[in-house]
Design a protein around this nucleic acid. Structure first.
Length: 811
DNA sequence: AGCACGCCGACT
DNA sequence: GTCGGCGTGCTC
């Protein structure tokens, strides 16, 4: 054995940089027994010192000139072999560096790394005339706030040769650089306790100042802070008491998690026959110890959560652990308390409002094995559970499972499936409105479909009225008579109403009736939306703003009309028609500021308003007991064929909202207004047949040879031989990344497998449309063409850049 | 990511 | 010759 450990003298380490590879370090003999995969080490990297994670130890290194490991940061591996495997898989699948992916599996802010602090040299102040403008600028920034980390000055300095100028300043003696090590800032919370001796008076009768105040604590164990507060003892006195043996200190780690306080007792709930059948299937799957994925398609109120609870209970009895993923936004106290009540003291909860310390503690207690169940948003998937038996992804269609803005860009639902595979676990994807890709996977027999078509309570799903708005004598062009009557009725009964309009602002566009001129955004070519709160025309893509012209800019006529209906116009109309109804509108101007969105929803929940109007933002976290009527004002928005993605979203929204109407006691109603009654989405909304909707959609897609799901698009730059002007597509990727970041995310140059596959991908980029712009292929094409034209204009004189956007199936 | 270095045009 | 912008390439 001795021989073996001596031979294992090199470690393969991943560091948190974007380079997609590992690094080799020599293990100094003193560290040898402590180095294992999953342990963090401090290593030199270039000019810096950084934290790395050991992934393997070996007797030989795959690199000739290894540096030494500087320090070992952990006593035991923080990352299991399984999570190492999972993150490595993600790094390949999502084209991200392993070192960046692995950060998901570690608590935040525990890294050690070297930092460089900068100080101006006082004596040199007078000599600033020796400096160039740029050097002087950086010098003044450092003088203004001395002693900060180099990185902060770089941010203040902006673009340009920061390091070059900084090094010149250091060389000339204007700036002093001090290097140091930044240690972890988040660690376990340690509480000092004192044990007070029972008979302390006997041993220390003549203690100066007396010990009367201590009498109440004799023989007890109390937090030191508490004791000092009660007795008023100084630290010096406490120290002396410790020396005398009256007090004994012990340190205990305390979770920063709020103590379990939910009072309600777990109710004994009888499962319906359907629930029992599904539970039987799932329990059998858990017993088998094999990897299986189930898509649990259950209508709203069909009791999916109860099935999760029972299945998890079964898994726990088998000595296994469980992960429950929920969308960030729906993490309401009710959802969590349901799990906490069912499994008291056994659930680690994660949510966005937890402090770093609380997160650390929750992580630590999962690591310790204190908790067997983890409930939280996508980040909860990477908790250090061992022997996972079940992974639940609730509301699996929810877009918040996608992390699209930060590296690594990943989809937690899909990673959950892979983690399930690694653990031979049962994975349950639950939704009342499954995503197309999950349904597609059931048709391919990759997943198994479980259906819960009935509500537990027996309450009927709401009645859906589809109103054909064509040729109707429209009242103010917005409301059908049916919707007006229904709103009036519900208000009279003191019930609540939701009105949905998926279009913001006052009017969608602004048109001159004399010449037909429409105000468009100069950047995006889309029509500008009129907003009444600031009396401006706004672009909903790039936020470009302009004043409302009094006369047509084209023909100077004053025959200007606003067309299309936004939420602000509807507000005006509702207030005119129902002056008695208390009203809340959710739009950009009413939801600015922190938590404004939540506050409005809360107010509505507390029945401080009768009518809630808004865009699809309402649907997030929707749970209103008193809502019995939902009006969908223009169901056609976003349905333009063949824009499948937004058709899917609109249909999802309709199904969710209508499913929740009258969820508890009263049967709800939904009024859908449309100019396109024959549209398939609306037909199926009427029938409440979500899977039926998909069957139709798949048929359409097939006929149009459109892939079942599109995540990424590739950009094809045609007609120009770029090989003479640009050496790599990396250059283009970089140039485009800087522009129009809101519109798309440049994932990278075409990854090797694709570029090798087909020569025509040579100048392609892998680009992802940002979520809210799904399906806006034409728009993306224009934005990218413009950005590329600007970038290429210096290199290609007077050449037209034509760009094709192709959907690419990456999965 | 963070950092160093090389190339090149603009300017002493 | 030096400066600064820009782009590339390396980190064990």
């Amino acid at each position: 054995m001795e021989v073996d450990t001596i031979q294992m003298s090199y470690a393969e380490v991943i560091v948190n940089i974007s380079a997609p590879k590992t690094y080799w370090y020599q293990i100094p003999e003193a560290f040898l027994p402590h180095i294992l995969p999953g342990i963090r080490v401090l290593v030199p990297l270039n000019t810096r010192e950084v934290t790395g994670v050991v992934v393997a130890v070996s007797k030989a290194a795959a690199f000739p000139k290894c540096k030494d490991i500087l320090d070992v940061l952990d006593q035991a591996p923080l990352i299991s072999e399984e999570l190492l495997h999972l993150t490595r898989w993600m790094s390949v699948y999502y084209q991200a560096a392993w070192g960046q992916v692995i950060q998901l599996a570690l608590p935040k802010r525990i890294d050690h790394y070297s930092i460089q602090k900068l100080y101006p040299v006082e004596e040199k102040h007078a000599d600033f005339e020796q400096l160039t403008d740029r050097q002087n600028y950086l010098f003044s920034i450092i003088c203004r706030e001395p002693g900060k980390v180099s990185k902060q000055y770089r941010q203040a300095f902006g673009s340009g040769s920061y390091y070059y100028i900084l090094n010149t300043l250091i060389k000339k003696g204007f700036v002093r650089s001090q290097r140091g090590l930044q240690k972890e800032r988040v660690k376990e919370r340690l509480i000092q306790y004192v044990l007070v001796k029972t008979d302390f008076r006997k041993d220390t009768p003549a203690f100066r100042g007396g010990l009367d105040a201590l009498a109440d604590f004799a023989g007890k164990r109390v937090p030191l802070a508490e004791l000092r507060k009660q007795t008023g003892y100084s630290p010096v006195k406490v120290k002396r008491l410790i020396e005398k043996g009256v007090l004994k200190i012990d340190v205990q780690q305390l979770p920063r998690l709020p103590a379990f306080s939910y009072k309600e007792k777990a109710k004994k709930i009888l499962l319906t026959e359907i629930q029992q059948n599904i539970l039987g299937t799932l329990n059998k799957a858990i017993d088998k110890d094999t990897f299986d994925v189930y898509l649990l398609y259950g209508v709203t109120g069909s009791g999916k959560t109860q099935v999760y609870l029972e299945t998890i209970k079964h898994a726990l009895q088998k000595g296994k652990t469980a992960v429950v993923l929920i969308p960030e936004i729906s993490l309401t106290p009710q959802t969590v308390s349901r799990f906490e009540t069912y499994f008291p003291g056994n659930v680690a909860v994660f949510h966005s409002k937890m402090s770093l310390g609380e997160r650390f503690d929750a992580w630590y207690h999962v690591y310790n094995g204190t908790y067997q169940i983890v409930v939280g948003p996508r980040s909860a998937l990477f908790m250090p559970l061992k022997n996972i038996g079940i992974i639940v992804v609730d509301e699996e269609h929810d877009s918040s499972y996608k992390q699209s803005s930060a590296v690594p860009r990943y989809h937690a639902r899909d990673v959950a499936v892979y983690r399930g595979k690694l653990n031979q676990a049962t994975v349950i994807l639950g939704s009342a409105t499954p995503s197309l890709e999950s349904y597609y996977n059931t048709t391919k027999k990759k997943y198994q479909l479980l259906e819960m078509p009935k509500r537990v309570s027996g309450i009927r799903l709401p009645k859906v009225h589809v109103v054909d708005m064509c040729g109707k004598k429209k009242l103010a062009g917005i409301f059908s008579q049916l919707l007006i009557d229904k709103i009036g009725q519900r208000l009279k009964n003191r019930e609540q109403v939701i009105l949905l309009q998926n279009r913001r602002g006052y009017a969608a566009f602004f048109q001159c009736t004399a010449c037909g001129f429409i105000a468009r955004c100069p950047n995006c070519e889309i029509s500008l939306t009129l907003h009444t709160y600031n009396r401006k025309l706004q672009c909903h893509y790039c936020s470009h703003m302009r004043e409302i012209p009094e006369k047509c800019p084209n023909c100077a006529s004053d025959e200007i009309k606003y067309k299309g209906t936004g939420t602000q116009k509807i507000e005006e109309e509702v207030k005119r028609l129902f002056p008695q109804g208390r009203f809340i509108r959710m739009d950009l101007d009413t939801t600015t500021g922190k938590n404004a969105h939540d506050r409005l929803l809360q107010a509505f929940r507390e029945e401080k308003a009768d009518i809630l109007l808004g865009t699809q933002m309402i649907a997030k976290g929707l749970d209103f007991d008193k809502v019995t009527l939902v009006g969908v004002i223009s169901a056609d928005i976003g349905l333009s064929f063949p824009d499948f993605r937004s058709a899917e979203r609109v249909f999802q929204l309709l199904t969710q909202v209508s499913g929740r109407a009258g969820r508890r006691s009263r049967v709800g109603e939904v009024v859908v207004q449309t100019y396109n009654v024959s549209h398939y989405a609306i037909q199926y909304a009427g029938a409440h047949d979500y899977i039926g909707f998909y069957r139709e959609e798949m048929r359409y897609r097939k006929s149009m040879q459109y892939p079942p799901f599109v995540r990424l698009v590739a950009l094809n730059i045609n007609g120009i031989d770029l090989s003479k002007t640009i050496s790599t597509s990396r250059e283009i990727a970089k140039a485009l990344r800087r522009r129009a970041k809101d519109f798309y995310t440049v994932i990278g140059p075409a990854p090797a497998p694709i570029s090798r596959l087909k020569n025509r991908y040579r100048w392609q980029l892998i680009v992802k449309l940002n979520n809210r712009r799904d399906g806006q292929g034409t728009y993306l094409k224009k934005v990218m063409a413009d950005a590329l034209a600007i970038y290429l204009s210096s290199r290609l004189k007077d050449q037209n850049v034509s760009i094709d956007v192709d959907p690419v199936d990456m999965i």
